[in-house]
């Protein structure tokens, strides 16, 4: 399935946001997920099914002032 993650197309076989995060090995990090413009709380990741062409943003904290 093609997903648009952080602006790039990724072809992967996953079913939920939880699996997307796991695919990139980000479970331990303080990552926030947004799907089609809506923030998905961490406890909802496993219940959020991904669909073809879904736009997903995975963001985290970096240094800044």
């Amino acid at each position: 399935m093609n997903l648009i993650i952080n602006g790039e197309t990724h072809d992967m076989s996953v079913e939920t946001i939880d699996e997307v995060v796991e695919h990139f090995g980000l479970q331990q990090g303080l990552v926030v997920a947004e799907v089609n413009g809506i923030v998905i709380e961490r406890n909802e990741w496993e219940n959020t099914t991904v669909t073809e062409g879904m736009r997903i943003e995975l963001v985290h904290f970096v240094g800044g002032g």
């Binding site: 990139f24 990090g29 995975l58 985290h60 970096v62």
Partner: peptide
């Protein structure tokens, strides 16, 4: 203070500042 940015998916383990 911190900023929020996209995770670099080519190198997902590069610095998240909080670590």
């Amino acid at each position: 203070t911190f900023a929020i940015r996209r995770v670099n998916l080519q190198d997902p383990h590069e610095d998240s500042i909080l670590q």
